[in-house]
Amino acid sequence: MTSQAPHQPWLQRWHVKPIGWTILLVVLLVASSRMTGVDVGMFLSNLDQFTALLTRLSQPAWDYLPVIMRPLYETIQMAILGTTIGAALALPFALLAAGNLVHNRWLRSGIRFWLDLVRTLPDLLLAAIFVAIFGIGSTAGVVTLAIFSFGMVSKLFYEVIETIDMGPLEALESVGAGKLTVIWYAVLPQILNQFVSYFLYTLEINVRASTVLGYLGAGGIGVFLQRSLNEFNYSQTAVIILATLVVVMVIDGISNHLRRVLL
């Protein structure tokens, strides 16, 4: 047994790293609360307004439900079309970004950087721009969701492609098959189930996203959400939120079930 304590470098002995991180965290917290003007007292003093709003939200006007059925369907339709277009566009990009298929590093990292750029754009921001281009309506919503899901799906897809078994590819290449033949007979069969699973996952996210896109005029239930909020008609807002909740949960349930069957 050694009688001496093991030697500690001063970095460890004085806990420099944890203390440094804590100081950084506190400085950032103080700076950001000053910048955002956080004031707990103001929130508490206006709490009655907030609770009044909550009580009005808790009394849904159920007779409004038939009015919003049509835009609810529209929301799902937008999500389905947008996800499909986005996924179809994503497939070639995913193939080009996969490290085991494309050996040209410049092409690959160029495409990956482009995909990273697309992924940085938030959905509502895209919606605002496409409403300016396509006008108010569901077309802007479909295009927004297509671009949004393109960014997400392409990354998920190329990460799947990089995990495939290279055996079938090498077998086909060794007998002289062309690039497209290899992709069709060796790559696609291995990844199809994963693709469909990720497609459904993206669809779930897009259904959630499409419910608010209409807030900026991009079609669907969001248009009615904005209208009810502008008219301070919170009992209608409550119905819209609850109906959206049911739709999202049903789509999530179906998609979860299908994904479990697939994988």
Binding site: F43, L47, F50, T211, V212, L229, I241, T244, L245, M249
Partner: peptide, 15 residues
């Protein structure tokens, strides 16, 4: 599932 935008609007009423 509660939309973040609606939450923001609710909190704008409060603060």
């Amino acid at each position: 599932t509660f939309p973040e935008i609606v939450l923001a609007i609710m909190f704008i009423k409060a603060v």
